[in-house]
Simulated assay, not measured.
Amino acid sequence: MALLDVRNLSIDIETAQGKIRIIEKVSLTIIEGSIHGLVGESGSGKSFIAKAILGLHNPNWTVTADRMFLGSTDLTKLSPSERRKIMGKQIATIFQQPRSYLNPSKKIFSQIKEVLPKKRLVDKLFNKFKKIKDQSTEKIVKDLLHKVGIQNDKTVGASYPHELSEGDCQKVMIAMAIANNPSLIIADEPTTAMEAVTQAQIFRLLYKLNQLHNTTILLLSNSFGSISNLSDYMTLIYCGQTVESGNYQQIMESPMHPYTEAMIKTILAFDGNIIHKSKLYTLPGSIPSANQLPIGCRLGPRCPRAQRVCVTYPDVLIFKGHVVRCHFPKLSD
């Protein structure tokens, strides 16, 4: 069953040079209880998609979609106040650069306490008539910090964000995200600028949340290799256009789109077959700027299979579970 169903999402931004379509007909189907990876180079529009789902629109944005459902709720028909009631309860967000999203003037304990649901506090703290075991706010915060792998909860709770490492700040954000037991967590490049050990800890924590609590996770990343083994399903995006979607095994074993093939080739396999001082694979060219996007298929100028017809936008092709937008997909037997 699809927890989040987005069809033909487009985002137009008003600029000094005129209106630019930064996201074009993006579709996402997130299965309940799965980890879905949204992969693309920096500047491909992943954060724009996340903000559109969350309702964090700038005034100069024009967001349109044929369908944007969270379960049975039509997100496009909700008012801003109704959308805010869903945020944090049904959908939670883990931002990149977590220290910049935490309040620098408040200690961690106070910030986690603010996001705790009032009903949970009433039930846990004050409901003596139903003989519910008394549990202090400190115990609730402690349990959340322990759940995300922070053992020195007293030290972290009494600290300001600038006194913590980037990894600990990210774990605090995850603790705040899961405080309301949301159905969907959107993790926007949660390991940016972190060392490899901390990255592994964050990814292991997200995987644990998914397995133990059946939490659905939309994981945004610009590194195909880092999240490929973690994801049940994957969607690849280039310059605001989705190019291919499918489950992990399908994508890795039989990629159909040239961009997908290129991303897989960038994964290093340390099995002794890499020639010393050999060049790493890169797709020719560079990602275009937002005000110079190619017409039709935006990969066209860099695509090894490009032909004249690629100046028109390709239709959706569904083949053996793959959803691909390409005029010349690689169809396996």
Results as ranks from 00 to 15, higher is better:
Asp12Asn: 13
Asn152Cys: 15
His322Tyr: 00
Gln292Gly: 03
Leu4Ser: 04
Ser10Asn: 10
Arg7Ser: 14
Ser10Met: 11
Val39Pro: 00
Tyr207Gly: 01
Arg204Asn: 11
Ala187Gly: 01
Ser100Arg: 13
Gln250Lys: 04
Ala269Thr: 10
Arg325Val: 08
Thr235Gln: 03
Pro258Asp: 04
Ala50Tyr: 15
Leu54Asp: 04
Ile108Val: 13
Gln241Met: 04
His213Ser: 03
Gly55Gln: 12
Ile178His: 03
Glu114Thr: 08
Leu145Tyr: 03
Gln151Asp: 12
Ala175Trp: 02
Gly272Arg: 14
Gly167Val: 01
Pro161Ser: 05
Asp232His: 08
Val324Ala: 07
Arg308Phe: 10
Ile174Val: 06
Ala50His: 10
Pro304Trp: 08
Ser254Glu: 08
Leu3Lys: 03
Pro190Val: 03
Gly55Cys: 08
Leu206Trp: 00
Ile267Thr: 02
Met173Ser: 05
Leu209Trp: 04
Gln211Cys: 11
Lys119Arg: 09
His146Ala: 14
Leu102Val: 10
Lys77Cys: 09
Arg305Met: 04
His57Tyr: 10
Val115Gly: 06
Leu280Pro: 12
Asn60Val: 09
Cys239Glu: 12
Trp61Gly: 02
Gln17Glu: 14
Cys310Met: 06
Ser286Lys: 15
Pro288Phe: 01
Glu261Phe: 05
Pro255Asn: 01
Leu280Thr: 15
Asp66Leu: 06
Arg308His: 14
Leu184Thr: 01
Glu163Met: 08
Glu114Asp: 07
Pro301Gln: 03
Met234Leu: 11
Ser254Gly: 01
Ile91Met: 02
Lys89Asp: 15
Pro80Ala: 09
Ile22Pro: 02
Lys279Glu: 13
Glu82Tyr: 09
Leu121Arg: 02
Met256Val: 00
Leu3Thr: 12
Ser332Cys: 10
Ile22Asp: 07
Ser100Glu: 07
Pro258Gln: 05
Ser183Lys: 12
Leu56Ser: 09
Ser72Thr: 10
Ile202Lys: 11
Phe48Glu: 09
Phe270Ile: 08
Thr215Asn: 01
Asp315Trp: 08
Leu230Trp: 06
Gln307Thr: 11
Asp66His: 01
Leu28Tyr: 02
Phe129Pro: 07
Lys128Trp: 15
His213Met: 04
Leu38Phe: 13
Phe224Arg: 05
